[in-house]
Every structure is written in structure tokens, then in C-alpha cells.
């Protein structure tokens, strides 16, 4: 992004943050998730700044992008919730233990890492935004995103392996 584009984005941010927040808050019902959706929208706007600058209606472009970010957020968080709830009904035969005194979280923690499983639960079950979950563990949002992706993938692979 050149200087002119940076200034363009910043001014658009200042002008549109509250209106976009109003839209996101209405759709997501949560202040921090709404903020995150708006931030994600502007992150995408930076990546597509040439397209945005050329758009006859940049404000409309942002609203459309925000709408897709919101739909994606809901769909993805629902999927994460499903995965974690399914993971909690562990199968002793699958996870290789024969004792009744077992904590499923310990099992998954040993497979995917305790911090990673906690991160996933925070977002999937406790309604945390990526930023909230990242701050709690002292990591960046980008790292949080990647760790949740990897953890999700490992758990799905475990389910698929044991369904064969």
C-alpha cells in the first residue's frame, strides 16, 4: 500500500467504524465479536486496496465484505462448537484407555497440546473472540488463528481415523 492508499484506508476507517460496528453488533450480538468482524473487514480491505479504491461505492463495498465476514464467522464458530462438543464425548476404545476415571480434556491436551485445546474451547464454547483468546495466552491474533486451525484439523483427523 502506498501512502495515499494508507490515508484513504485510515479515513475510511474513522468514517465507517461506528456504522460498521452497528451492523456487526446487530448481526453478532456481541461487542467484541462485532469489533473483530469490523477489524477483519478492514484487514481484507487493506489486502484489496486497489479494488476498494477503484470501487464507485467504497462504503457499500465495506458493508458487503462485512456481511460475508459475519456469515463466515457464524458458520466457522458453529463448526468449532460442534467439534469441541463431539470431542467431549470421548470414546474410551478410540482414545486407548480402559479406566473410568478419565478426564477427556487431558486426553486431548496430550494429543493437540493443553494450551491449544484451551484456546479452541475459549473460542468454540466460551464465546471469546480470537483477540480475547489470544490476549489471555499472551500470543498474537495471527498465532491464535493458526493454532486454532491446526488444533481443529488434528481433532478432525482423529475423528476420521477412528471412524474408519
Amino acid at each position: 500500500m502506498d501512502k495515499t492508499q494508507e490515508e484513504f484506508i485510515k479515513q475510511l476507517y474513522i468514517d465507517m467504524f461506528y456504522p460498521l460496528s452497528a451492523y456487526a453488533q446487530s448481526a453478532l450480538g456481541d461487542k467484541l465479536l462485532a469489533e473483530e468482524a469490523v477489524q477483519d473487514t478492514f484487514r481484507i480491505a487493506c489486502a484489496k486496496v486497489d479494488v476498494l479504491c477503484a470501487s464507485p461505492n467504497p462504503e457499500g463495498w465495506l458493508v458487503n465484505t462485512l456481511k460475508y465476514v459475519i456469515q463466515n464467522t457464524k458458520r466457522s464458530r458453529a463448526r468449532l462448537n460442534s467439534i469441541v462438543v463431539t470431542a467431549m464425548t470421548y470414546d474410551r476404545d478410540v482414545l486407548g484407555t480402559c479406566t473410568d476415571e478419565i478426564d477427556p480434556e487431558l486426553i486431548y491436551a496430550s494429543i493437540v497440546g493443553e494450551d491449544n485445546f484451551k484456546l479452541l474451547k475459549r473460542v468454540a464454547l466460551d464465546g471469546y473472540s480470537m483477540k480475547e483468546a489470544a490476549y489471555e495466552q499472551g500470543i498474537s491474533v495471527e498465532t491464535c488463528k493458526k493454532r486454532i486451525q491446526r488444533t481443529k484439523k488434528k481433532i478432525i483427523e482423529l475423528f476420521e481415523k477412528n471412524n474408519k
Binding site: E36, D40, R43, I44, A47, K48, N64, T65, Y68, V69, Q71, N72, T73, R75, S76, R77, R79, M130, V141, K145, Q149
Partner: peptide
Amino acid sequence: SIYDDGITLDVI
């Protein structure tokens, strides 16, 4: 996006 299920920048 930060939540990566199904939506890419190209789709948007």
C-alpha cells in the same frame, strides 16, 4: 479471513 471456513478474498 480470520475465520477461514469457506470464504476467501476471491469470493468476497
